[in-house]
C-alpha cells in the first residue's frame, strides 16, 4: 500500500498532462465528424506529445532516476567541501592517463584550481567539483571541462539517440582496449550517475543537487 501511494505521489507531475490530453480529446470527439476523426485525433496527439515532450520527459527522468539505487555514498573519497554539491570525475585506464594526471586522482575546484591529489585512489585522473544549481548533465559536464581550461576536453558524435562521447582528454576507448571491427567487442566511455550506471545519456541526464557524474572506460 505504501509502495502504491509513493509511486502515485512520484507520478503526480504526469497527471496534469494526462488530464489535459483527456479533456481536449473528449472535446475533439464531440465536435469533429466521424470521417475525419482519425486524422484530427492523430494530428492532435502528435502535436500534444511534441509540445509536452521536453517537460514530460524531464519529469519522467526524475521519476526513473529515483528508482536507481545509488551505490553507497557517491561522494565517498571526494573533499568534504563538496558534500551537497555537484562534481564530475574522470577515471582513466592504467597507462592511458594524461601525463599531468597520472600520479593519482586530482581534485579541481569549480574555479579550476588543482587543490588536492589522492595518491591512494584506485584509479588515476581527476574530479572537478563544488558546482551548484545545475539541472542538466551536459551543462555540468561542460562547466567542469571549461573550469579546467579544457584539461578534460572531449570529442563526441551526435547520433539520433543523443551524444556519444568519443574521447576525453584525447583518450579514446579503443586506444586503451582492443575493439573488433564488427563491433562484437570493444570499449566505450561509460557514464555513472551517483555511482550507478546511468540509464540515459549525458544529454538527457537530469541532476540532483549533489549529483556526482563519473566517466570511465569500460570494455565489453
Amino acid at each position: 500500500m505504501f509502495l502504491i501511494a509513493s509511486a502515485f505521489n512520484s507520478m503526480n507531475p504526469m497527471i496534469p498532462y494526462a488530464s489535459t490530453f483527456g479533456i481536449i480529446s473528449i472535446l475533439i470527439y464531440a465536435s469533429v465528424n466521424k470521417q475525419s476523426i482519425a486524422k484530427v485525433m492523430a494530428t492532435f496527439t502528435l502535436v500534444f506529445v511534441l509540445i509536452t515532450f521536453s517537460s514530460a520527459s524531464t519529469e519522467w527522468n526524475q521519476y526513473t532516476n529515483g528508482l536507481v539505487d545509488d551505490v553507497d555514498d557517491p561522494h565517498y573519497g571526494l573533499p568534504d567541501s563538496w558534500d551537497d554539491k555537484q562534481a564530475v570525475c574522470f577515471h582513466f585506464p592504467e597507462g592511458y592517463t594524461p601525463s599531468n594526471l597520472d600520479d593519482g586522482r586530482h581534485h579541481f575546484d569549480s574555479n579550476g584550481t588543482d587543490f588536492k591529489i589522492d595518491k591512494n585512489w584506485n584509479s588515476t585522473g581527476g574530479c572537478v567539483g563544488g558546482f551548484e544549481g545545475y539541472d542538466y548533465g551536459l551543462n555540468l559536464f561542460n562547466a567542469a571541462v571549461e573550469a579546467t581550461n579544457s584539461t578534460f576536453s572531449y570529442n563526441y558524435t551526435q547520433f539520433y539517440f543523443g551524444l556519444q562521447i568519443d574521447s576525453i582528454a584525447g583518450i579514446s576507448p579503443c586506444a586503451a582496449y582492443t575493439c573488433a571491427t564488427d563491433s562484437s567487442s570493444g570499449a566505450y566511455w561509460e557514464m555513472l550517475h551517483n555511482g550507478a550506471y546511468s540509464l540515459v545519456g549525458i544529454s538527457d541526464l537530469i541532476l540532483d543537487s549533489n549529483s556526482v557524474i563519473t566517466w570511465q572506460i569500460t570494455s565489453y
Binding site: M41, A42, T43, T45, S57, T64, L199
Partner: peptide, 19 residues
C-alpha cells in the same frame, strides 16, 4: 526510462497511419 521516446514513436505512427 525510455517510455517518453516510445510514446513519441507511437504518436508518430498513429499520425502516419491516419494520413
Amino acid at each position: 526510462s525510455g517510455i517518453p521516446f516510445d510514446v513519441l514513436h507511437a504518436a508518430g505512427n498513429m499520425f502516419f497511419v491516419a494520413w
